[in-house]
Design a protein around this nucleic acid. Structure first.
Lengths: 385, 385
DNA sequence: ATGAAAGCGCTAACAT
DNA sequence: ATGTTAGCGCTTTCAT
């Protein structure tokens, strides 16, 4: 196989051990020992990436041997192993994950589809997902639907095409049809929904304590003396709108307050919808004395309006919102919220997914609810407890 | 090749056109026409993903023909093409991007390394990067260093291993050594630095108008009547700390104000460092009447402290910061900032990278500076202009 | 302990 | 217009 560098013949050449980590040859015909010092003179030709075959040629051994050495299999002589490792360093070898994945039939990669990284909830959840992934030896591939159903579907296709081992999905606010998710299911690709889940399909989900959170916030308002409580929700079709509304109603009911449809406002969750909602509420014949917004961002927009009109917070009007972030903390007055712990949600979701990947479990439809916490701040606290 | 489903012989079978989009066969031996209706009875066995070979078998044609049809090459009969397309739908075929990439030697994927998605700048930049990527037919693979040098290096390795076509990098605040970047360069993988760039290595970069931004902010403070202006920077070793300090000094110089080292404060960019910085400044024998923070988040932390001490903003002390976000806008008083337009930075970075990928240009070291804008708000505006 | 060969899914050059 | 073949980089039998 190896040509003698002296007599150019092939027939008499045999390998004769290693020297300085390199394969040594002996030509029986011309009785000559040699090492292929300048074997890598071939490299500059393709200045790109050394492959396993490059290593093999470099050492004068078989590619399969290199592979085994690299992967720490037994049945490899310490000598060869050392030589391979050294060669890998010398040639700056990096395994080609594409090839590995293609061969193994798995990528060790998890696809994540989120609607908007600019929402603090998703940014934080994403950070925690990434952390768990690193710790457990997975990679993540993040796709961003920018709240567009079309892009979300495109993203899902891309991730399937990349043969991710599993999918973590939170839907865009536009999304109304779910064939793309059905397709994932049909292909037995493990999937976990989180936060913006889809209720029409039976998948594992990680959600918040939406009912309890709403209930706690509204009960808190009532305990602070509010009796006319307005609620600002997302789109009516949203599951979380519905369930958070139920929490709201349950709290009113507990304290014998009648539900007034005029105090229920649905929005499209666009920027500044809080402003519009506030306009609506303040122009009611009998304006609320407490306002609960499904998104804390909206609660803050409402407070901005209230302050413009010199309304005293929380005395004249108290505010609470769902979900915490730094703005809620630093805005004045600081906003009372139900913190739904984005970090815990992200962690729960990826852990559940990894578990399902490992067990090849694509049928489970566990629903995990992450415990939240009422954080009372200045926007609602009137000294009563 | 195809066994006759009647006489089980292979020799006499020839293809005889298509029927309902399916390959039709004719067995010369038993004089029998047939279609492989139940060919896909094989599918459930591997309920996973149809491959190009599955399609080929299904239609009784060659895999390469399927490939060509799928890729819209010329030289394919409309008939075959239609049949292939239909089969692709029937079997829910999705190309395996791993295989495609391995074969083509490129992935159409761009790797993005950012230190922290939870910072609004990176969240917004990331969203714009993703958008451009989608529009230009690239995918992105996002990695998150969580401000850790070790994870950043790991991420870089991962992305190289995934054979991304190019890299978009913003360093963690910890990062001090850059061999991982050198390695990228050595492998001729196109790379573009943005925001947190590395000056020790000659790479293309997209940066802000750091000098001009600082200059404008400080000049604005001076024009509002401030004479004792404190500056809070990041780590001294950071390039942006240095350059923003220069802008600060230049503005003072222009108005004949002497630079006082006591008014310069370096921080490690941790949470609440603004609080510490404020403590420092307020305890100086001669406290500043204007404060400039390199990160607007820090400016806000300082204002929180100032308000606690009943300091009048902007009359007694004015505040400005670098970088805009919703908190700057909604905090009271709203913060005067130099907006460095994260969206534009992200777009510029990915466009530059894609250009270099297409031109196989790995040596260019263009430096693009994205134009920013002074946004004057309540934290500093005293009515003068 | 190591090599040879097949195969993961796809594309492209080369037939025909 | 379509089939055959080789090869992308890697792992994994199966030999030896």
């Amino acid at each position: 196989m190896q040509k003698c560098i002296k007599c150019n013949s092939v027939d008499g050449v045999i390998r004769s051990g290693f020297l300085r980590g390199k394969q040594r040859f002996f030509c029986k015909l011309c009785n000559f020992h040699f090492i292929l010092e300048n074997e890598n003179a071939r490299l500059p030709q393709k200045a790109t990436q050394a492959t396993i075959v490059d290593l093999a040629k470099h050492l004068g051994i078989a590619a399969s041997t290199v592979s085994r050495a690299l992967n720490g299999k037994a049945d490899i002589s310490p000598f060869t192993r050392k030589a391979v490792m050294q060669a890998a360093i010398d040639l700056d070898y990096r395994p080609n994950l594409l090839a590995q994945s293609l061969n193994k039939g798995k990528t060790n990669t998890i696809g994540v589809v989120i609607p908007n990284v600019e929402l603090p909830f998703f940014a934080t959840a994403l950070a925690s997902i990434q952390q768990v992934a690193i710790d457990t030896g997975y990679r993540i591939m993040v796709c961003h639907s920018s709240e567009s159903e079309a892009i979300e579907k495109l993203n899902t296709e891309t991730l399937i095409a990349c043969r991710v081992d599993g999918l973590l999905v939170s839907h865009s606010k536009e999304t109304t049809s779910f064939e793309h998710i059905q397709r994932v299911l049909a292909k037995s690709i493990p999937i976990v929904h989180f936060d913006r889940v889809c209720n029409e399909i039976d998948t594992p989900k990680v959600i918040h304590e939406d009912f309890k959170g709403s209930f706690d916030l509204v009960e808190h308002l009532i305990l602070q003396g509010c009796r006319k409580i307005g609620v600002m929700l997302g789109p009516q079709k949203f599951y979380i709108s519905q369930i958070r509304l139920e929490g709201y109603k349950a709290a009113l009911q507990k304290y014998g307050i009648e539900v007034d449809e005029k105090y229920i406002y649905y929005s499209e969750m666009n920027k500044n919808d809080g402003t519009k909602a506030f306009e609506y509420f303040i122009n009611l014949p009998n304006p609320p004395d407490g306002l609960f917004a499904m998104l804390s961002r909206n609660a803050i927009e409402m407070m901005v309006e209230a302050k413009k009109r010199q309304i005293k917070i929380p005395e004249d009007m108290a505010f609470v919102g769902f979900g915490d972030d730094i703005l809620c903390e630093l805005f004045e007055p600081s906003l009372t919220v139900f913190n739904h712990f984005p970090t815990k949600v992200g962690e729960a979701a990826i852990n559940l997914l990894i578990e399902n990947i490992k067990n090849k479990n694509t049928t489970s439809s566990t629903i995990q609810s992450v415990q939240g916490e009422l954080v009372i701040r200045d926007s609602s606290f009137k000294g009563k407890s």
